[in-house]
Deep mutational scan, measured.
Amino acid sequence: YKIYPYDSLIVTNSISVKLPKDVDRTRLERHLSPEEFQEVFGMSIEEFDRLALWKRNDLKKKALLF
């Protein structure tokens, strides 16, 4: 996945969300650098992957990456 800054990946309720063209809309968190991922989620990507799907989705919603 290509890395993008968190600010360019957050999704708000506005209709005209302009995400970069090559971003996987269903896995926005994968486009964060490991350092920024840790900062946003408070855990590593590996720890995040071990969580239940509902928990990952809940965290993504709170981080505006859903």
Results as ranks from 00 to 15, higher is better:
residue 26 T to A: 14
residue 58 D to H: 11
residue 40 V to I: 12
residue 59 L to K: 05
residue 34 P to W: 10
residue 13 N to R: 07
residue 11 V to L: 13
residue 48 F to P: 00
residue 13 N to S: 12
residue 45 I to V: 09
residue 61 K to A: 08
residue 40 V to M: 04
residue 25 R to C: 10
residue 35 E to S: 10
residue 6 Y to S: 01
residue 42 G to Y: 07
residue 45 I to E: 05
residue 61 K to H: 07
residue 19 L to Y: 15
residue 7 D to T: 15
residue 30 R to V: 05
residue 32 L to Q: 00
residue 22 D to E: 08
residue 21 K to S: 15
residue 22 D to F: 05
residue 37 F to Y: 02
residue 55 K to H: 11
residue 48 F to G: 00
residue 16 S to Q: 10
residue 12 T to E: 09
residue 56 R to M: 06
residue 32 L to C: 01
residue 46 E to G: 11
residue 66 F to L: 12
residue 17 V to I: 12
residue 19 L to S: 05
residue 50 R to M: 13
residue 58 D to G: 09
residue 13 N to L: 07
residue 28 L to H: 01
residue 41 F to S: 00
residue 66 F to T: 07
residue 63 A to D: 01
residue 52 A to F: 06
residue 33 S to N: 07
residue 62 K to G: 09
residue 19 L to H: 08
residue 31 H to R: 01
residue 45 I to K: 07
residue 1 Y to G: 07
residue 7 D to L: 15
residue 24 D to Q: 05
residue 65 L to G: 02
residue 16 S to A: 12
residue 3 I to R: 06
residue 21 K to C: 15
residue 39 E to M: 15
residue 36 E to S: 08
residue 18 K to G: 15
residue 4 Y to L: 05
residue 36 E to I: 06
residue 51 L to F: 06
residue 25 R to F: 08
residue 41 F to A: 00
residue 52 A to I: 08
residue 60 K to P: 00
residue 39 E to C: 12
residue 30 R to P: 01
residue 29 E to A: 01
residue 9 L to E: 00
residue 60 K to S: 02
residue 22 D to C: 06
residue 19 L to D: 05
residue 30 R to W: 04
residue 56 R to G: 03
residue 59 L to F: 05
residue 49 D to Y: 09
residue 40 V to T: 05
residue 33 S to P: 03
residue 31 H to W: 03
residue 51 L to Y: 06
residue 23 V to Q: 02
residue 48 F to I: 00
residue 1 Y to Q: 08
residue 16 S to V: 10
residue 50 R to W: 06
residue 20 P to E: 05
residue 17 V to L: 09
residue 28 L to R: 05
residue 16 S to Y: 10
residue 18 K to C: 15
residue 40 V to Y: 06
residue 62 K to R: 11
residue 58 D to Y: 13
residue 2 K to Y: 06
residue 60 K to C: 02
residue 6 Y to P: 01
residue 23 V to K: 02
residue 2 K to Q: 11
residue 23 V to R: 02
residue 62 K to H: 09
residue 17 V to N: 15
residue 65 L to H: 01
residue 27 R to K: 12
residue 44 S to F: 09
residue 27 R to P: 01
residue 16 S to F: 13
residue 17 V to M: 09
residue 57 N to W: 07
residue 64 L to N: 14
residue 16 S to E: 12
residue 39 E to D: 11
residue 4 Y to S: 01
residue 33 S to H: 08
residue 61 K to S: 07
residue 26 T to K: 11
residue 41 F to N: 00
residue 22 D to V: 04
residue 37 F to S: 00
residue 20 P to K: 03
residue 36 E to C: 06
residue 43 M to P: 00
residue 39 E to Y: 12
residue 28 L to S: 02
residue 1 Y to F: 12
residue 49 D to M: 08
residue 8 S to Q: 15
residue 9 L to T: 01
residue 25 R to M: 13
residue 43 M to V: 05
residue 35 E to G: 10
residue 22 D to G: 08
residue 42 G to S: 11
residue 64 L to W: 08
residue 44 S to M: 10
residue 54 W to A: 12
residue 47 E to S: 10
residue 53 L to M: 13
residue 2 K to H: 09
